[in-house]
């Protein structure tokens, strides 16, 4: 075989291979890539029974590559395999000038391109504050806390507004493998046991699922823009590593009695919360009272204060106190 040119796709044996598939290192052509890429996601959806016919599904759309490809694949597979799903795009507008504008444009393009209804929920609409206003108040430090906490809720609230049955997100295999490793490094056995589930929050009002659980980030990039010049070297030695990490995460012998943080409901807004008030309500209260540092960092005292201040009859929070430090929502899809 000649070097460089003349390589034939190892799947169809006809066309010229256009890329080395990150997951298997097979040399395949563009058409075959799309076929295997979409078929794999279809298999994941079918094997895990992610959806039932007639369900309303919101696609969390940020405008980035993962969610854009997710929107494309979901609408394509829904059409091709007759899932019978009602698909919606759901975006969050944090109100950051110059940041979301572009990506919201992308989402709006997706709306037209794939014919999916789009719902944009904005921070100002949900919380009465845009991120710009928050940053003006609290400065450049710690504002990620607000953005992260608010966004997590915003997706759920938007999904509730759309009256959907499930929310799908574009978390990919790389994200999940990273979470597995992070949870090992952090010593969080409880999250380690659930971070590989393809559906989370099944007992909650709106379960979330991740059809890209076994899909490599690079392949999503390929599918999105078909850029070949990306560095491939990382996984060249061992393309299976990411899948193996996920497999390990699934196979870990974690006893079912591993204690999970208890989930209650926020007394103010009704969102799931391990505390009297959910994190968003605490942060919001701080903003509205002009005490923006409330609920930031590990200062349990301050947070305990607000919870007890507003709930004089609150139970002593002995048991739940320890859990307060586990607010890192970003590691837990």
């Amino acid at each position: 075989m000649e070097k460089g040119k003349g390589r034939v796709c190892s799947l169809c044996n006809e066309k010229r291979a256009a890329l080395k598939r990150p997951k298997t290192l097979e040399q395949i052509c563009r058409e075959c890539f799309y076929t295997v890429f979409e078929d794999e996601i279809h298999r994941v959806i079918v094997d895990n029974q992610l959806f039932k016919p007639g369900e309303r599904i919101a696609i969390g759309a940020s405008g980035g590559k993962d969610s854009t490809v997710l929107a494309y694949v979901m609408s394509e597979l829904n059409r091709r395999h007759n899932y019978g799903l009602d698909l919606f795009l759901l975006s969050v507008d944090e109100g950051i000038t110059g940041y979301r504008d572009d990506s919201l444009e992308t989402v709006k393009r997706n709306e037209i391109q794939y014919g999916l209804p789009l719902k944009v929920v904005s921070y100002s609409e949900l919380y009465g504050w845009t991120m710009d206003e928050i940053v003006k108040l609290i400065g450049l430090k710690n504002n990620c806390t607000f953005c992260g906490v608010f966004r997590r809720q915003a997706l759920d609230r938007g999904a509730a507004l759309l009256k959907v049955d499930k929310l799908v997100t574009g978390h990919n295999a790389d994200d999940i493998a990273e979470t597995v490793l992070l949870n090992i490094l952090r010593g969080d056995i409880a999250r380690l046991s659930r971070c590989t589930s393809i559906i989370t929050g099944e007992d909650g009002p709106i379960p979330r699922c991740k059809p890209f659980k076994y899909t490599y980030e690079k392949e999503i990039s390929f599918c999105g823009c078909f850029v070949l010049d990306k560095q491939l070297s990382n996984h060249d030695d061992r393309p299976r590593a990411i899948l193996d990490i996920i497999k390990s995460g699934e196979d870990f012998r974690i006893s079912t009695s591993t204690k999970m943080p208890e989930q209650g409901i926020c007394e103010r807004c009704g969102y799931i919360s391990s505390q009297k008030w959910c994190k968003a309500c605490v942060l919001l209260e701080g903003l509205n009272r002009g005490l923006p540092k409330l609920g930031i960092g590990r200062s349990r005292g301050v947070r305990g204060e607000i919870n007890s201040e507003h709930n004089a009859n609150m139970k002593p929070a002995n048991g739940t106190k320890n859990l307060q430090s586990k607010q890192c929502g970003s590691l837990d899809f």
Binding site: L181, I184, R238, I245, S248, G249, D251, F252, R253
Partner: peptide, 15 residues
């Protein structure tokens, strides 16, 4: 070894 086993997909036998 914990991380090696994880990356090699030996999550089950790791313990």
């Amino acid at each position: 070894h914990v991380l090696e086993a994880t990356v090699k997909g030996r999550g089950y036998s790791l313990a």
